Computed example of a mutant assay.
Amino acid sequence: MHTLPERVQICVRPSHLKAAPFVAEPYFAKRVMVAVPNILASVRTRLARLGDLGRKRSPILRKVPRLQVLIEWAARIGYGARGFVYLSVGILVLLAAMDVIGDAVGTKGALAWMASRPLGRLWSLLIGLGLAAFVMWRILQSVFDADHEGRSWTGLGTRMSQLFSAFSYAALAIAAFGLLAGAPDDVAADGVARSRDVASTVLHLPLGKWLLIGGGLTIFAIGVSNIVKAAREDFTEYLACSARLCRRVAPLARVGHVARGLAYLPLAGLVVIAGFHAEASEVTSFGAALDAVERQPAGPWVLAVTALGFVAFGAFSFIEARFRRIRPPKELKPLP
């Protein structure tokens, strides 16, 4: 009598037994979890061999730094681009508080303002590339644990915030590249219009009112987390500089994070109110929220202090661009 092959026999069951549903799914998932890292390792090995072969044969390629060095350069450029953006925001907000210019602006407003200056498209391109490099570094930090935070609750929380940061700076980089086509005539009005368009889209979704409220609460949580981070974080932990210099630059980071945190709160409140009223017209931009703060008693002083905080955050980003320990992962293997 002919016997069935082993693989076929495994699938044969007596008719009175119930077939277990989804038996193949765990097996398939396990195969995928094993296969994906192997594929990544294989691709990385092949690229490394290709790079070594190219270095042996081409004098030009021998001068190209190793991948680890290129990643470090990209990360430092990214920190510098972030510092330039926040330094620009701080200066523009300070000028608005002193009534030298019209309205205060946020990060996207600062990019649009620079794009409208001489050589604006060049600035937009350079900042967009720098921010894209910073997004790459944030992904290495969060997904591939470049900073060796580990899988503790604290480490996972840090990596999750780095992932959210990657999304936000990716949006900012896209905005910078979008300005290559030209800056809007009215930066402040354009920012408000964009925010209201997004709010209107959200309100037309199922449970849109509650989604908008949730968005406002998320902005509020981001602001509070920046303030908490300013109080608890050791910002010199990742800096490769002398103890004396670290003591001097740490206050810049604390002041900068407090300023960022407080600046988010007015916008969060306006978004939550707009959600409760289900009115997209009540939503405003980051810069317009700062303008609302300026119209309050002692508002110009509050706005000026916030602007100096943004300048401090930008300055600390330049410090990080120079002194931060950049440790690119040797293997691009995602850590859960």
Results as ranks from 00 to 15, higher is better:
327 R>M: 14
79 Y>E: 00
317 S>C: 15
270 L>D: 05
87 L>H: 02
72 E>G: 14
97 A>G: 05
89 V>P: 05
79 Y>D: 01
298 A>Y: 12
209 K>W: 08
109 G>Q: 02
47 L>S: 01
205 L>I: 00
7 R>Q: 14
77 I>T: 13
112 A>G: 01
329 P>V: 10
81 A>L: 06
289 A>S: 15
275 G>H: 03
138 R>V: 01
259 A>T: 11
149 E>H: 07
246 C>T: 11
318 F>M: 07
114 M>S: 12
266 P>K: 03
20 A>H: 09
196 R>E: 10
32 V>Q: 05
43 V>E: 10
333 K>H: 09
12 V>L: 05
105 V>P: 07
45 T>L: 15
206 P>M: 04
18 K>Y: 12
270 L>T: 08
324 R>Q: 10
294 E>A: 15
105 V>G: 06
291 D>A: 14
140 L>S: 06
95 L>G: 11
281 S>E: 12
182 G>R: 05
193 A>P: 00
161 S>R: 14
211 L>W: 03
262 L>D: 02
315 A>K: 05
84 F>T: 08
117 R>P: 00
109 G>W: 05
6 E>Q: 08
237 E>G: 06
281 S>Y: 01
97 A>F: 07
226 N>G: 08
21 P>L: 00
67 L>G: 04
187 V>S: 02
46 R>F: 12
3 T>D: 14
200 S>C: 09
319 I>S: 09
5 P>G: 15
18 K>T: 15
8 V>C: 03
299 G>V: 07
117 R>W: 00
285 S>E: 11
68 Q>C: 15
183 A>Q: 02
97 A>P: 09
329 P>A: 11
222 I>K: 07
235 F>Y: 13
173 A>F: 10
135 V>F: 13
152 S>F: 01
19 A>Q: 13
139 I>C: 15
26 P>D: 06
285 S>D: 11
332 L>I: 06
269 G>M: 10
180 L>M: 13
47 L>T: 02
169 Y>C: 06
308 L>F: 14
155 G>R: 08
57 R>S: 06
45 T>G: 12
216 G>E: 10
105 V>H: 04
321 A>V: 02
231 A>K: 09
224 V>G: 06
111 L>G: 07
143 V>K: 03
2 H>D: 13
53 L>E: 09
138 R>W: 01
48 A>F: 00
320 E>N: 14
322 R>I: 12
125 L>G: 01
148 H>K: 12
179 L>D: 00
255 V>C: 10
